[in-house]
């Protein structure tokens, strides 16, 4: 069984249909990339998986999203549990205006009472996971806003790691970073893949080709093509896919 199974998903912003009958199965502990031109609905699709679209007024969603076999759009879905399980990394690093420690401890504190020793343990583990511990271990009470953008994005990933999700959704996580920082985050993703199912939205096709195992190509709200990354980039089935990856539009 796939980790995530999207079935017949339609999404409307008022009268505008942003997703049209999307069907997609995402495999566990792999990196799946969603590519496509701006406005094709790839970020919207990503945000369906932790129901972040619920925050927007006038959104209507039909269809099913099964995660571990359970439809998250079923009435009575616990959003807190869903978002704990399906975490998200945003386009711009968005650490809270709190200390580094409090940023990482935010999730664990939210989800249950932990004593200080447990929290310190989690903070250390999470920071080690994103290779920030050695740099920041003496600066834990500094404001997270003083870090470089790359470190901020790592911190945001560590913040997510601290709530032990199954799935990580990454919405163009490197678009605010320079090439060196980008390659470091990509290395980190390869590492994270061992523990998490990762879904990444990017409009950087090289990045998708470099890091992902599976790639989906979206256009105008439809999932045009989906398959192994190598296959999609070398022998695309759809003419539109080929035109996009060869740079005819986008």
């Amino acid at each position: 069984m796939s980790k995530i199974d999207i079935q017949n998903l339609d999404l409307f912003y008022g009268p505008f249909q942003a997703l049209i009958n999307v069907n997609l199965a995402i495999e566990e502990k792999m990196i799946t990339a969603l590519i496509g031109p701006s406005g094709c609905g790839k970020s919207t699709l990503l945000r369906c998986l932790n129901r972040m679209n619920d925050l927007i007024d006038g959104v209507k969603i039909t269809g099913k999203v099964l995660i571990d076999g359970e439809n998250i759009y079923e009435n009575g879905t616990d959003l807190v549990m869903l978002r704990k399980k399906v975490g998200m990394v945003f386009q711009r690093p968005n650490p809270f205006p709190l200390s580094i420690f409090d940023n990482i401890a935010y999730g664990p504190r939210t989800h249950g009472n932990m004593n200080q020793a447990e929290l310190e343990d989690i903070v250390e583990k999470s920071l080690r996971h994103v290779e920030l511990w050695d740099i920041l271990k003496d600066k834990l009470d500094y404001s997270a806003l003083n870090l470089s953008l790359e470190q901020q994005q790592r911190l945001c990933i560590a913040r997510l790691v601290a709530v032990t999700p199954d799935v990580m959704l990454m919405d163009e996580p490197c678009s605010a970073l320079d090439p060196v920082a980008t390659s470091k985050i990509e290395e980190l993703m390869a590492e994270l893949k061992k523990h998490y199912t990762i879904l990444i939205v990017t409009h950087n096709m090289q990045q998708a080709a470099r890091v992902s195992d599976r790639t989906g190509f979206m256009l105008l709200g439809k999932l045009m093509e989906y398959g192994e990354t190598r296959q999609v980039f070398t022998t695309p089935k759809e003419i539109k896919t080929e035109e996009y990856i060869t740079g005819r539009y986008g």
């Binding site: 932790n50 704990k84 968005n94 809270f96 939210t110 989800h111």
Partner: peptide, 20 residues
Amino acid sequence: SYKEGSLALGATHWQTIHRV
């Protein structure tokens, strides 16, 4: 983005308001 970040971590609306 603060609000979204907090909600995406599974915080409730009230937790988001008073902690972030």
